[in-house]
Design a protein around this nucleic acid. Structure first.
Lengths: 133, 133
DNA sequence: TTGATGTTGACAATCATTATCAATAAGGGT
DNA sequence: ACCCTTATTGATAATGATTGTCAACATCAA
């Protein structure tokens, strides 16, 4: 049976405070700085559980690192992610869902799934970059 | 200046024979089995060059491995990939390009890019799975 | 409270990828 | 055809994220 531990709650809580995609290591640092003595392996396990249970979304950074972000459970959604600061927001993509399904069907592919993420530079980072130039 | 070596040609040729996304290690094995004594690091370098130069597409497997596939250069395109055998084909996504741009703009994000890939089970693998059941 | 067992955490192990660096070879100039 | 400069190679070490191990610990049903 699944048990509730303060460690898992701490990871969930810490992830909830981030509105950007963060790595397990980053989250571990945040937790340690917050005074908890949580172990790194535990953070990895908790995040993997959350992702598997649909309570967090994950994606791979360009460098191959796994990044996580809390998400509204149960709903299929995608993200608009800032390439500079990692900040992310959920976006709807109903049209794309349909498109993906029809493309798969047209080619005879079954059990379609898709990966759709939009990257860019968020307003704040754009402003910062402009100011610097 | 960039030089032409048989190693780079061998990697290009080997990648061209694959119609699935393959890892650097897999391609290295193929090349070694083909009798060439090419080094692993060289395969990594050649693939990175090809990806940077738009002569190959890359994506990360669920396990975080980098996978490569030869592609038609110069064109922006996406893939329909078999989750079972890795087989992939290029697909057009004009509507999605537009959608991505408008979504980014609507949220004030600049320099939009996107990752759009459709995964499924190809006809051959679907048939195989059905026959087994 | 207690006992069975899910969980934790320090650390070792794994594995893809990258850095190192001496030896090699491409190709422009002669 | 022959140097010579320097990009490239490849064996191997190094890196770094993630996972496995396992004894100690904590949760919760009874």
């Amino acid at each position: 049976m699944k048990r509730n531990t303060w460690q898992r709650e701490a990871v969930t809580a810490a992830l909830a405070t981030q509105d950007a995609f963060v790595s397990a290591q980053q989250l571990h640092s945040v937790l340690r700085e917050g005074g908890t003595g949580i172990g790194l392996a535990t953070v990895y396990r908790a995040l993997a559980d959350m992702a598997a249970g649909g309570r967090a979304d994950s994606l791979q950074s360009a460098e191959g690192e796994a990044l996580y972000r809390a998400c509204t459970p149960g709903e299929h959604h995608h993200h608009l992610i800032c390439r500079t600061c990692g900040q992310a927001e959920e976006i709807e993509a109903v049209e794309v869902e349909q498109w993906a399904k029809s493309i798969a069907a047209a080619h005879g592919y079954t059990q379609p799934e898709h990966v759709v993420d939009v990257f860019g530079v968020c307003p704040a980072c754009t402003a910062a970059a402009t100011a610097r130039a």
